[in-house]
Design a protein around this nucleic acid. Structure first.
Lengths: 95, 95
DNA sequence: TAACTTTACGAAGATCGTAACAATA
DNA sequence: TATTGTTACGATCTTCGTAAAGTTA
């Protein structure tokens, strides 16, 4: 599992719309949609209930989706901390 | 970055030897070696100092390596929790 | 029917394993 | 020189984007 999938899911939930999320992530909708379907297959359960219509679309997090969303945020935070902590170390060493 | 890279780095450090770690992970040494080099390139600094010789090899974690090791363990723990929490949810729903 | 998601499929890129090479106590 | 790690390179697999089809208020 690529960590970008966690990050992209968080962005998707925060954005509330797959098309706009894909634009923000510099991805196409099909790519992001496939990532979501991959996650749901990997975890064995739906994460979102998506409703489409003429006036736009919306979705609700399933119970599993809520859990995954929280875990994904934690995982992304740790990865970001890894980068920044190590970068801070390297930077200080140079000075 | 695939989360398996974090997991494999943790196993590498815990094993203390690239060949044995690769065997445990059902990977070849070259594949694991490339993963380490990828991580070092990605984070911009060496993570291990490896010493080779006739009687085997050993390595020391660099300072950045120590930080990465701790973060990698945390990240893996969160991913494992995501799987188990969601699986527990699905399992309970079935009952 | 408008707005959006999903599926199909070909192409580009990533990553593995095998084999050969390099390094060091 | 024995025991590792590293490079080179071809093959396989993955995942993206484009285009077409499907879905629903």
């Amino acid at each position: 599992m690529d960590t970008s999938y966690y990050h992209n899911f968080v962005t998707l939930v925060n954005t509330g719309n797959m098309t706009r999320a894909a634009n923000r992530l510099h991805l196409t909708q099909p790519a992001l949609s496939k990532q979501l379907r991959y996650l749901e297959a990997e975890f064995g359960t739906p994460l979102l209930h998506i409703r489409r219509g003429q006036r736009g679309s919306s979705f609700q997090l399933t119970e599993a989706g809520h859990i995954f969303y929280e875990k994904a945020k934690q995982l992304c935070a740790i990865e970001i901390a890894a980068y920044s902590d190590i970068e801070g170390l390297v930077h200080n060493a140079i000075i």
